[in-house]
Amino acid sequence: MSAMTTTTAGPTRARLGEIAPIPLSRVVRVELRKMFDTRAGFWLIASIAITGLTATIATIAFAPDQDLTYYNFAKAVGYPVTVILPMVALLAITSEWSQRSGLTTFTYVPDRRRVILAKTWSSVIVAIASMLFAFAAGAVGNVAGSTIAGTSTVWDLSAGHATTIVLGNLVSLSIGTMLGMVLRSSAGGLVMYFVLVLLVPNLTSLLATSQDWFAHAQPWVDLPFAQTSLFEGMHTGAQWAHVATTVGLWIVLPGIYGLRRVIRSEVK
């Protein structure tokens, strides 16, 4: 035990200034920091950049020359973003329960809705940054790829299409947020996430080919199906309606249920 110093434990109050409410922006900054300050969190986000760069190089190396266009590069770099971001959003929420750090987090900020809102904002900030990275990496890859292949550089991604790609990724991200709130368990959340993104789309496409009624209903109830049009380009108003109904059904409704559970559940 080292010798005690002059610092006293006693409350001195005035020294640290007036007690003011905590602004949401501060909670967002702290939650953003918490996404990076563990090894697991840091490498999860770093893996977006690493796999993105790998995808750029792979596209240059393996894609046929006519496919060396900006859209294909952006798609290749963006795919890891789409897969990994929801895990970032999910783990930001579930770790408070699985690692039990919620015992402190929710005593610093007792209004749990604000904590969830801050976590969602910080996930969105990471998402936007990741997609800007993906678009930039795609641009570099496109220039480099076409130069190496000796083809002309093709810029075939409109601003409108880029926006719907961003929206598609934000929809993916909110799947993670929703699952995090509903399940509040890292292991359970990750398993459920992979079931939803890997298993369910296969089952629904199988169902759609065998059952005629489902083939008609699918655009209205199948979220990954509706998301595909966001990634590949929106052309009709019906597509927007499909996105709105599936997001409402699979993200907003369970999200409301999850938020209620987050607010009411006991933090132990």
Partner: peptide
């Protein structure tokens, strides 16, 4: 409490940290 940590110090379980 507007900023609970400034008024109440809480330690419920020292091991409940990431």
């Amino acid at each position: 409490l507007p900023n609970p940590g400034r008024e109440v110090g809480v330690m419920l379980d020292a091991s409940a940290q990431h």
